Computed example of a mutant assay.
Amino acid sequence: MRDEHHRTKGPVGVPRRPAGVPAGDTPTAPPPGIRYAGIGDEAAPGLTGQLAALRELGWTALELRTVDGRALADLDEHAFGRLAERIAEAGTEVVCVDSRIADYNRPVTGPFARDTGELRVLARRCAVLGTRYVRVMSYPNDGLGEAEWARRVRHRMTALTRQAEDTGLVLLHENCAGWAGTRAERMLDLLHHVDSPALRLLFDTGNGVPYGYGSAALLEAVAEFVAHVHVKDAVRTRAGEVAYVLPGHGHAEVRECLTTLLRRGRRGTWSIEPHTRLRPHDGTDTREGDGVAAFVAHGRELERLVAREVLPAVAALPHGGGRG
């Protein structure tokens, strides 16, 4: 997600209907074992807009990151209680909470208590919301040598995972910021070092474009540990910037990644993260255009991509895909 060397920008306004997608496209069911969801604050800052975007898509699964600009762990008890009530009243399920633990704003030299404290709060709140999944990263460096950076990351992630075990949570490490963010061998090293089912991977299809690696190749190496997916797509412009586009319309190998997940028997939630309104990693929060409409356009294009390209690609594989 974060690009240390290049500025990022997203498309302005609402994406136009892609060529070949007829007007009045109706929702299509996801593949068996897959659920579609979305990171709510990508559509709107407030819960009303976030739920409205899901309702328009006909989806019932929400990934929570911020509400009215505040992280879930920072809400007071009254605000959180009302939030949980409204989500339940809407018939919506929370499938994952995106924390700030070990993320791009928390280097490995920072206070560890900040992360353990946030995890304690989220353990209580995830129990109320009915989800076990908490998104984390693996600590950016802050001037340490490679060996010391790795040592501290392994130590902290082991302690956080043991804390998650004690509270029934599963930490999902995203291929984003931190020591194990962009290299498959480090992801596998971290998983093997911690050695717990309470630490698994969250795979974001779009992060390879800003970070400069092939998403499909990285996924192939770590697919057996992927428990949750973010779907976004991006292109690098001639000016060296990153622009975010509809799923399947960029350079992030989204079709190949989703095909691999099904071929390897990975099931779970595919959650859209359009990056048209909000990009927390670079501080972008624009109110240009209609965030809900852009969010819905991305959801519809994911449905179309899966129905028309991913599922036929899986069906064409020997034995219709199966486990790799």
Rank of each mutant, 00 (worst) to 15 (best):
A73V: 02
R7M: 09
L201H: 13
T161N: 01
T269C: 08
G265T: 09
R300K: 12
R263W: 14
Q163Y: 02
L62K: 08
A150M: 03
R200S: 12
H275I: 01
E301P: 11
G250E: 12
C96N: 15
E253L: 07
R82G: 01
L202M: 09
T259A: 04
D233Q: 13
A243C: 10
V14H: 11
A102T: 06
R162W: 07
H155C: 00
R7H: 15
L62P: 13
E148L: 05
R162G: 01
R308S: 10
G178L: 10
L262R: 14
R267D: 07
G145I: 05
R152G: 00
V314Q: 05
L258N: 11
L122H: 14
A180M: 09
Q163P: 02
I101T: 10
R287Y: 01
M1E: 14
D282A: 01
K9I: 06
T161P: 03
R267P: 11
L219M: 11
P27M: 02
S196P: 11
I34P: 12
G38R: 06
E185T: 14
P32F: 03
R132E: 15
A316E: 03
V95D: 08
E309H: 15
W270D: 01
V254I: 10
P318K: 00
L64R: 10
G268D: 03
T167A: 08
Y211A: 01
G49K: 05
G283Y: 05
I39W: 14
T28W: 13
H155R: 04
A227S: 11
L199G: 04
A123Y: 13
K9Y: 12
R2H: 15
G49N: 06
E224M: 04
T66H: 09
R183T: 12
G291A: 02
T284Q: 11
R200T: 02
L202K: 04
E93S: 06
N141Q: 05
R132G: 02
M157I: 12
H275V: 01
G130S: 04
R35P: 05
H5E: 14
V231I: 15
V14E: 13
V95P: 11
G268S: 00
Y36R: 05
A184Y: 14
R100T: 13
G110D: 15
T269F: 12
C126Q: 13
R255M: 04
R35C: 08
L64Y: 12
S271P: 11
P11I: 04
E241F: 03
E146I: 02
H173I: 05
E288A: 02
T158A: 02
A252E: 11
V134H: 12
L172Q: 07
A102L: 10
S99L: 09
E4Y: 15
G110R: 08
T60H: 14
A159K: 07
E93P: 01
G206C: 02
T109E: 10
L188S: 06
A294Q: 04
E220W: 14
G91P: 08
S99Y: 12
E301F: 08
R183M: 11
T161M: 01
D233R: 09
A239W: 08
E185D: 15
R120Y: 08
A73F: 06
A159I: 06
H173K: 03
Y104T: 00
G268A: 00
I87F: 03
M187T: 07
T205S: 07
V170K: 02
A198G: 02
V21H: 09
